Amino acid sequence: MKISIITVCYNSAKTIEKTFKSVENQTYNNIEYIVVDGGSKDTTLEIVEKYEKIVSKSVSEPDKGLYDAMNKGIKMATGDLVGILNSDDIFTDDHVLENIANFHLQNNVDASVGNIIQFNEEGKTVRKYSAKNWNPEKLKIGFMPAHPAIFFKRELFDKFGDYHLDFKIGADYELITRFFLQHNISWKFSDITTTSMLIGGVSSSGFSSYQLISKEIKKALSRNNIKFSYLKVQLRGFWKIIGFLKKK
């Protein structure tokens, strides 16, 4: 089973070497590693060249943003499975892709859904984001599993399309909604903690970002003809707090 891993980057010299090392250290050998660079001006491309032994395919050219770059990577992919590894993230351990491959060999599903760990700039773990209690119905109230913890069969993109570029930060939400709710793909919780992610980013901080992603969640659900409550989506932060308190 070949696994295609896609890393999108732009001026990522400060972080991307750790990302490359986490791929290099994987015990699984049948990896197709694809790097899509947006035309970096720093030393990112020098680092890509340094790791040419593990980089199967790469391209460096201007793009229309993160999701356009992901689409380029998906079109270049030839693996049975596709996963995303961001340029400031790492696999949690050396056995992640071996575990993913074994899980998919044992479970004939279109997608596996796992967990991630979030860490701050000091390297301290601040949160484990588990999909244990997630199911596709929760998309209707604004909850999605962590994008980097999902491994899709590559053929799904051929059947159901790529990331839609008219979303600023919610194209992953729309794609997951389209795959899981509109097309009812088969899936299973893997309980594999795949990725350690640097906390922050374009869609995870600030009131304005909260409002934007709320708008795009509603747009994603509407586009896929999914019935939902505008109020529940808007108040999803409240449901998160309630869930956290219940765990306590």
Rank of each mutant, 00 (worst) to 15 (best):
Q118M: 14
V113T: 07
A111L: 11
N71V: 09
K75E: 15
G123C: 12
L66N: 05
D110T: 02
G79W: 01
D68K: 03
V109P: 10
F119E: 12
E137L: 01
K72L: 13
A101G: 06
G73A: 09
S87N: 11
I100H: 13
P148Y: 01
M70S: 08
N102F: 12
F143L: 08
H147I: 01
K124Y: 00
K128A: 14
A101V: 05
K132G: 00
L66P: 03
L139V: 11
V82L: 03
D89L: 02
A146C: 10
H147G: 04
L85H: 12
I141R: 14
T78K: 09
A146Q: 07
N102R: 15
N133P: 04
N115R: 11
S130P: 04
L66D: 02
G142T: 09
S87G: 07
E122R: 07
R127T: 08
H104F: 10
A131F: 04
K124I: 00
I90H: 03
N71E: 05
Y67K: 11
G83C: 08
E122G: 04
V96W: 04
N71T: 05
D89M: 08
L97C: 11
H104A: 04
I100V: 15
D94H: 15
A111M: 15
L66C: 06
R127I: 09
M70T: 05
A149G: 03
N108F: 15
I116A: 14
N71S: 03
D110S: 07
N135I: 03
E98R: 13
N86R: 07
F143G: 06
F119M: 14
N71H: 03
N86A: 12
G79Y: 00
K128Q: 14
V96Q: 04
L139K: 02
I74S: 08
K75G: 09
K72M: 12
E137R: 05
I74G: 10
T92C: 15
H147S: 07
D110Y: 02
G114L: 13
G73Y: 11
K128H: 12
D68T: 05
V109A: 13
G142L: 08
N120K: 08
N102V: 05
N71F: 00
N107R: 05
N135E: 10
L81R: 14
G114N: 13
I100Y: 13
V109K: 12
E98P: 10
N135M: 05
T125I: 13
T125M: 12
G83Y: 09
G79M: 08
H104T: 08
H95M: 11
I90Q: 07
D89Y: 10
R127S: 12
N86M: 11
S87C: 04
P148M: 03
P148V: 06
T92N: 15
K140W: 06
E122M: 04
Y129T: 03
L81I: 09
D88M: 02
I90D: 02
K75A: 10
M70Q: 13
N120I: 08
F103P: 03
I116W: 09
N102M: 15
A69M: 14
A69C: 08
T92G: 08
I100S: 12
E98H: 10
N108R: 13
M76L: 15
D68H: 10
A77R: 06
E121Y: 01
H104Y: 10
L97G: 10
A131R: 03
N102E: 14
K132L: 02
A111S: 15
